[in-house]
Structures are given as C-alpha cells and as structure tokens.
Amino acid sequence: MAGLKRKDILGLREMSTEEIDLILDTADALKDIATRPIKKLPTLRGKAFVTLFYENSTRTAKSFELAGKYLSADAINISISSSSVQKGETLKDTARNLEAMGIDAVVMRHPMGGAPHFLAKHLRASVINAGDGMHEHPTQGLLDMLTIRQRKGGFKGLKVAIIGDIFHSRVARSNVFGLAKYGAEVWVAGPSTLLPAGFEELGVKVTTRVEEALEGADVVNVLRLQLERQEKALFPTVAEYSKFWGVGPERLKLAKPDHVLMHPGPMNRGVEISTSAADGEQSVILEQVTNGVAVRMALLYLLLGGGDAA
C-alpha cells in the first residue's frame, strides 16, 4: 500500500526520494488521461478543493483546476489581489472559512515565504504550496523532474544548468532541493546580484558565467526574468541581461547535443530565451505543461484519494 505520509505538500526541501519517486510514478501512470478522448476519472468524485491565489497566475491555477476536474473533483478558484491582503480578511480566517464549507484541500500561491507552512498548521485540510514568495514551488519542481526523468531516465550524474534570476526564484529552489537529493550535478548561473547565498553547501555550483554552466549540460532550465527587478538596481537593461545571460542557439551549442531545454513559463521571448531555442527541437517546454497536469493529478490523488484515516 502506497501513500504519502504527510498531510501537505509544502516543499521539496523536506521530502525524501521515496516520496518524490511515488509522486513521479503516480504522475506517469496518470499522464495519459489528458490525451485520451474521455478525460475523466471518477476517483475524486465528491472531493472539493480551492485554489487560493494571492498572486496573479493563470497557468498554475488552471493546471490545478483541470487536474482536479479530470479526477472528478470539484474545484473553485479564488484570486485575491495583494492590496486586499492588507485590508481584508487574514489568511488564517479565509482558509478556515473555506474549510468550514467542506473543502478537502487548499492549493495556495502567496507572495510570502512560509505562508503555506503557517496555513498548514491551522487547517485539517491538506495544503498544497503553489508557490510561496521566493521559497518553493514544489509542483513545478516535480514536473521539471518528471520531464527530466522521462527524457533522461534518471537524475544521477546528470548535469543540470539553471539559468537566470536564481535569487528570487522559487522554481530554482525547488529544482535544486529535489535534484540534489538524487545526485545530479546542479549548476546555477546568473548575474551576481541575482545569485543566492548558501547553495554551495547543497553541492550546487554557482557561477556568473552562463557558458560555464551550459558546458556539457544534459538539462538546461531557463528562468523567467522579472522585468520589475530592473527598477531595484539588480540589472541595468534587458539588452545587457540578454547579451550576457540570455540562452540562445549559439550558447546552447556548449550543451550536450541531446540536451533538453526547459522553461517554467511564461517566457520573455528574446530576453532570457531566444525564440528559436524556445521553439527548437530540444525544447520540452510544452511537455512540461502536460506533466504539470499529471503531477498535480498525482498529488490530488495521493492526498485526497483515501479516507479520512490520515
């Protein structure tokens, strides 16, 4: 009998390889649902969850919503603008009210790190972290890992290069935490103002030279550059960023010929990633999206599929 021995999915940092394997295996088994004619399984019929998003996101919220609907669960979406956070109901009260209405899980995206951990302590329902500030985005980390596993068979010894604004990236953190557990050789590269402290201790190589990270890479994961960071003296212009750290066909020649190119989306075409690379043969960006639905289905199944004995 399988099953996750936890109520919530808050991050990859604290998960074991057994748990991650279970999630990826389950996602693999569920993946075909989204591509067959009848996109419906009765498994979570009668279960309800809410996507509670304090930050704008269409794709992740919709991905969760679809994942739930494919499993016959009921999903409602709540989108709260950041200004209402200050003026309105506290997070704790919002979630408790939803739980009182019979919600089985809350999928939350929040601008502050640790918010899902805070919520999980106050709810009996399951909490799935859909991104907490700069901390983690575990479902993205899992779908990235699933994509890598499908294409490369495993993680051990793979050179994975993550390029971009690592400092502010929860996608980078989740990927780093997850991949480091499996013995992958992880490199992060970006401008020095956008590189984080402490990653070296996880065995990650940190460099400001994107060429060094790309050299012989099996996997290249390009992160989105948030253009607002320009205003905070973190980089001067997108032109300069693109020139020094942009990923395009020329730079990708340094990677292995059969490398896979990933991007969590949405892309700034021409800034961090060139259009030809994004649409090229090595790009698995759309597979990531499909895998995203599969991973989210897997998590919903594993957390909500059983009885209340948990």
């Binding site: 940092r13 790190g113 640790g114 700069m134 901390h135 929860r170 402290a197 402490g198």
Partner: peptide, 12 residues
C-alpha cells in the same frame, strides 16, 4: 537575517 538560512527559506 540575510544569509544562507534566509536563502534556503525564501525569506527576504
């Protein structure tokens, strides 16, 4: 505090 722990926890 700004350091390794804040980096891992994703807290400013």
């Amino acid at each position: 505090h700004f350091g390794k722990v804040s980096s891992l926890l994703g807290i400013k």
